[in-house]
Design a protein around this nucleic acid. Structure first.
Length: 427
RNA sequence: GUGAGUGUAGCUCAAGGGCAGAGCACUGGACUGUGGCUCCAGGGGUUGGGGGUUCGAAACCCCUCACUCACCCCA
C-alpha cells in the first residue's frame, strides 16, 4: 500500500460518518437551546496564542502542538483546543464587553501530537460552549446542568460529574506556596515528574497517578481549605446551584485541569465505560484569561465535549442518533435503451421535488438492477420501459414489502408525495 | 517519549519449517420486464516492508513500519 493515513488520524466512513454528523447537529441544538450562538473558527492560529493561554509549561504546549511556519516566517500552530481561538475572535471582533453576557459555541477538529490510544487521536473533535462577561456562580451551575441533563437524557453509561475549585489570583498563590512547602517536605517519596512539576507547575502534581505519590498527595493540604472568602463563596454557590437542580456531583479536591488558565470552578465528566481515557467532557472558569490575551477584564466560564468519546459512549448505550430517511428514496432502472432519456427526466424532476434518487444505468439485467437498488439502500425501485414511456408512467415497487404499482410519472410533485407517504399494505 | 500485544485475500480468520487455504464479500452464468434463496464457475496474495538463518521461511532471528492497548497526557 503506497499511501495510508498518517498516524493517529482516522477516516470517518459511512455509516459512522453519518451518525457522527447527527451527533454534532444534536450538540449544536443542545447549545442553541441554552442560548449559545455558534462561531466558526480557523483551525490554525499564531502559536503564541496557545502558549500564552494554555500555559508554557503544559504538556500540550511543550510537546504536543503541530507547529509550522508561514511564508512570512510567522510561527503558526494547528489548534490543540478551542477556547483560546474563541476568545481571540471575541476580543478581535469585540463580541464581548464587560458587564454584558455573551454565549458562544464552536465545534470542529483539534490537533495534538500524542501517542494514539482508545479514545485518543491526533486529530479529534470537540464541541465547546463559553459564557463571557459574568462571574455569577449560577452561570457555572447552569452551564454544568446543560451537560449533566444531556448525559442523563441520552443515558451516557457510568457518567459522573467531578467538581473542584481552583481558587482565584488572590488565594491560589498562597496555596501554591503552602503546597510547594509540603511537597518539598516529602520530596524523597515523590516521582521524578512530580519533583520537576513542584518547580514548574505544582498544582499539577496533585493529578499524579504514580502509586508512590498517592499516599503523599492524599494527605496534602486540600486547595479548598485555602480558598479566600469570595472563592469559597463562589464555589459554595455553584454547589448549591447544582443541588437545587438535583444534579448529582462528586467533590474532587484533587481535580486539577491540565490547562493553566482555569480559576475558581473546575469540573469534568468521566465515565468508567471509556477505557483509560475516562473524561468525555470538561471545563471550568477562566476569569483572568481574556485580559491576559489583551482583551478587557472579562470573566468567563466554558466547557468542551470530546465528540469521539461521546460517540463511543452513545454507541455503548445504544442511544446514537440514527438517520430517519433512507439514504436513497428511489432507484430508477431503464428496461431498454430507449428509456434512458425518460429515466433522466424523472430523476431530475424527482430531485427537484427533494426526493433522493439514483439512476441504475449499466445494469444488463433486471435482476441486477434489483440487487443494485438494495445496495444503494433504496426504499423503492422504479422501472420504465416501452409501456411506461408511452403512458408517461413509472412502475414503482416497495423493496421492503414487495408491493408494486404503476403510477403517473408526472407531475413529479404527486409522484413525490406518493413516495414520501407510501401506500400502505394494499396489493 | 516508554512498554506490551498483533500484522496472511476487500472483511473475519486457518495453516507453527515442506504445494498459501476457508467462510463471507465480489464478478459471471443457470435466469433478456421482477430482488433477497439455491446451484455452478471465476477473479483475486510479493503472508506489512527490508535483511538474515536454512536445501526449503507465512512460520525462526534482527531491523523497520503500521495497528491495538497501556504508561504518560487529556476531550
Amino acid at each position: 500500500m503506497k499511501y495510508q493515513a498518517p498516524r493517529g488520524v482516522k477516516d470517518l466512513l459511512p455509516p459512522e460518518s453519518e451518525t457522527f454528523r447527527l451527533l454534532e447537529e444534536e450538540i449544536s441544538a443542545l447549545f442553541a437551546l441554552s442560548g449559545f450562538r455558534e462561531v466558526r473558527l480557523p483551525i490554525f492560529e499564531s502559536a503564541a496564542l496557545f502558549s500564552r493561554s494554555i500555559g508554557e509549561s503544559t504538556d500540550i504546549v511543550e510537546k504536543e502542538m503541530y507547529l509550522f511556519e508561514g511564508k512570512g516566517g510567522e510561527r503558526l500552530a494547528l489548534r490543540p483546543e478551542g477556547t483560546a481561538s474563541l476568545l481571540r475572535a471575541a476580543i478581535e471582533h469585540r463580541l464581548a464587553e464587560p458587564g454584558r453576557t455573551t454565549r458562544l459555541s464552536y465545534q470542529g477538529p483539534m490537533f495534538r501530537h500524542e501517542r494514539p490510544q482508545a479514545g485518543r487521536l491526533r486529530q479529534f473533535h470537540q464541541a465547546g460552549a463559553e459564557i463571557l462577561g459574568t462571574n455569577d456562580p449560577d452561570t457555572d451551575a447552569d452551564l454544568i446542568a446543560m451537560v449533566s441533563r444531556y448525559a442523563e437524557k441520552t443515558r451516557i453509561p457510568g457518567s459522573t460529574l467531578l467538581i473542584n475549585s481552583m481558587g482565584c489570583e488572590a488565594c491560589r498563590p498562597a496555596y501554591r506556596t503552602r503546597l510547594v512547602a509540603y511537597l518539598e517536605d516529602h520530596k524523597n517519596t515523590l516521582c521524578e515528574t512530580c519533583l520537576r512539576r513542584t518547580a514548574t507547575n505544582p498544582l499539577r502534581v496533585l493529578d499524579c497517578k504514580v502509586e508512590g505519590c498517592q499516599a503523599v498527595l492524599e494527605a496534602a493540604p486540600p486547595l479548598t481549605e485555602f480558598l479566600c472568602a469570595s472563592s469559597r463563596d463562589h464555589f459554595d454557590s455553584v454547589c448549591r446551584g447544582l443541588a437545587d437542580q438535583s444534579i448529582p456531583y462528586t467533590l474532587s479536591h484533587r481535580l486539577v485541569r491540565g490547562l493553566d488558565y482555569y480559576t475558581e470552578t473546575a469540573f469534568e465528566w468521566v465515565s468508567d465505560a471509556l477505557g483509560s481515557q475516562s473524561t468525555w467532557a470538561a471545563g471550568g472558569r477562566y476569569n483572568g484569561l481574556v485580559s491576559s490575551l489583551g482583551g478587557p477584564d472579562i470573566p468567563g466560564v466554558g466547557l468542551a465535549i470530546g465528540i469521539e468519546r461521546l460517540h463511543l459512549l452513545r454507541e455503548k448505550a445504544a442511544t446514537l442518533p440514527l438517520p430517519t430517511d433512507p439514504p436513497v428514496m428511489i432507484a430508477l432502472h431503464p428496461l431498454d435503451e430507449a428509456s434512458r432519456g425518460y429515466i433522466h427526466r424523472i430523476l431530475s424532476s424527482l430531485r427537484e421535488e427533494n426526493i433522493s434518487a439514483v439512476g441504475l444505468f449499466g445494469q444488463s439485467r433486471l435482476k441486477k438492477a434489483f440487487v443494485s437498488a438494495e445496495r444503494e439502500k433504496a426504499r423503492y425501485i422504479g422501472l420504465a420501459g416501452e409501456d411506461e414511456r408511452e403512458s408517461n408512467t413509472l412502475t414503482i415497487k416497495d423493496l421492503a414489502t414487495g408491493v408494486q404499482k404503476t403510477v403517473p410519472a408526472f407531475p413529479a410533485a404527486s409522484l413525490a408525495d406518493l413516495l414520501r407517504t407510501g401506500w400502505g399494505a394494499e396489493s
